[in-house]
Design a protein around this nucleic acid. Structure first.
Length: 438
RNA sequence: GGAGAGAUGGCUGAGCGGUCGAAGGCGCGCGACUGGAAAUCGCGUGUACCCUCACAAAAGGGUACCGAGGGUUCAAAUCCCUCUCUCUCCGCCA
């Protein structure tokens, strides 16, 4: 197993280009960036060596000038000579900056190396089901889609949201509003109380560097909402602010592992998803999510991934929603992930399982970009941590799953047992109580 | 939004053109002293990148880094400009 040692740093790429090439091929990605990297890297080092020699000359001669002046001697010739050297230094520095700029862009665009246990695939058809919990829900009547259930009860209002904002937004009214908040609180309580996570309510906007730190930029800028006239982006997931809480830090070994459960709204432009999931709560520009984030020692990160996945599963089990766990193939693996499990819930309207959570081990990929290290022991060299993130879980999709899986023949929806205490004891949403007022 | 003050190594705190990777203190590590410890004394204590070596490690050499980015200068922690952040006061506001 080489899992814990994969480093996507420049030396690694330089010394093992074939490993990276293989990784890109597995991901069905072009190796263009890799080739460009190798080319630029060589250029850079050549130029750097020359430049540093010149700087060395300038430094030693400057000392000499200082000495001459102190002794009251004439240094004009040397000063003139160094003027020229400084000019060359300047022009070489600007060449170097240009190369490094491009090198950085290229480097930032190379995805993480998949873990050996990740199934190799050509498309999302090659994802491998790992396990199932419960069975697809059976109905003795014709089940409705959640958007129909919600609209019939008057608690989901897509039309008004289109009027007020645009498509892929929704107003949650009455019991839907309460249910959304109940789900958030339930999930936070479960993860903090039972699984040992520390709750976080993060900023919903971050600056560019944070987006780069967790890998959303520079490659996927079109997927994010940017606030005009600022450098702020609306977060696509709480993973971004929460992981970046620790950017540019050297943590103490005793701080690890760090577990956070963060509530946030999430904003996604869904560029490239035109025409997909146009109805209902499944694909919105804004949705709520409770996100799990871990910072751990490299040796433990794969165990931590299993545990995190189980923690997310616990949400669905406690709510009684049928689901399966899928190991994502190299074709479908996220940019930052070395390994990823998806949780998919049974969605009657789709007649199939639909993603409700992704749990990823990013190894040191994000830690390297965000510069998050820890010191393994006194006097020891700082190492990059491993970061993990997983939905625990997407709230809007959970609402959809509850509406569909808990729907009754009369159009009402039973509230899962575990949520009732969060809903003032309500056990069922009916047409009569849908607006939730007395 | 207005006025002011500040940002230096793990922390604290000097430095205000060359001798500064950066005094002093604290902390930490190693050693001496001790039966052991405390105190005391001595030595040491950043990171990144490049080069040399067949890779790596070690070692040696070099470059850079005093909030960030530019500029002036033979030479910048030190001078100039821009930006960011923090603190104080005033105003406004949920």
């Amino acid at each position: 197993m080489r899992g814990g040692n994969i480093m996507l740093d420049q030396k690694r790429i330089r010394n093992n280009p074939d490993e990276i090439r293989e990784s890109l091929v597995k991901r069905n990605e072009s190796t263009e960036n890799l080739d460009r990297f190798l080319e630029l890297d060589e250029k850079r080092r050549g130029l750097l060596t020359e430049l540093e020699k010149l700087k060395n000359l300038r430094n030693t001669e400057s000392e000499e000038i200082a000495r001459l002046k102190k002794e009251g001697k004439d240094a004009a010739a040397k000063i003139e000579e160094m003027r020229e050297v400084s000019d060359s230094v300047k022009s070489m520095e600007s060449d170097l900056a240009e190369i490094e700029g491009e090198l950085n862009t290229v480097l930032m665009s190379i995805p993480n190396v998949p873990h050996p246990s990740v199934p190799v695939g050509k498309s999302d058809d090659d994802n491998v089901e790992v396990r199932r919990w419960s069975q697809p829900t059976q109905f003795d009547f014709q089940p409705k889609a959640h958007w129909d259930i919600g609209e019939d009860l008057g608690i989901l209002d897509f039309a008004t949201a289109s009027k007020v904002t645009g498509s892929r937004f929704v107003f949650l009214k009455g019991q839907a509003c309460k249910l959304e908040l109940a789900l958030i609180n339930f999930m936070l309580d479960l993860h903090t109380g039972k699984h040992g996570y520390v709750a976080v309510f993060p900023p919903f906007m971050v600056h560019r560097h944070s987006m780069e730190g967790t890998g959303q930029l520079p490659k996927f800028e079109e997927d994010a909402f940017k606030v005009t006239d600022t450098d702020y982006f609306l977060i696509p997931t709480a993973e971004v602010p929460v992981t970046n809480m620790y950017r540019e830090q050297i943590l103490d070994k005793s701080d690890l592992p760090i577990y956070h459960a963060a509530y946030s709204a999430c904003f996604r432009s869904e560029a490239g998803s035109a025409g997909r999931d146009t109805r209902g709560l499944i694909r919105q520009h804004q949705f709520n999510k409770v996100e799990l984030v871990k910072l751990v020692e490299p040796e433990t990160s794969y165990d931590e991934l299993e545990k995190m996945t189980n923690d997310a599963e616990d949400v669905l089990q406690t709510l009684g929603i049928p689901y399966r766990v899928v190991s994502i193939s190299t074709a479908d693996l996220g940019f930052t992930a070395a390994k990823k499990y998806d949780l998919e819930v049974w969605m009657p309207s789709y007649g199939r399982y639909v993603e409700i959570s992704s749990c990823s081990n990013c190894e040191d990929f994000q830690a390297r970009r965000a510069d998050i290290k820890y010191r393994p022991g006194r006097g020891e060299k700082a190492r990059y941590v491993h970061t993990l993130n997983g939905s625990g879980v997407a709230v809007g999709r959970t609402m959809a799953a509850i509406l569909e899986n808990y729907q009754q023949a009369d159009g009402s929806v039973v509230i899962p047992e575990a949520l009732r205490s969060y809903m003032g004891g309500l056990d069922r949403i009916t047409k009569d109580n849908a607006m939730g007022r007395r």
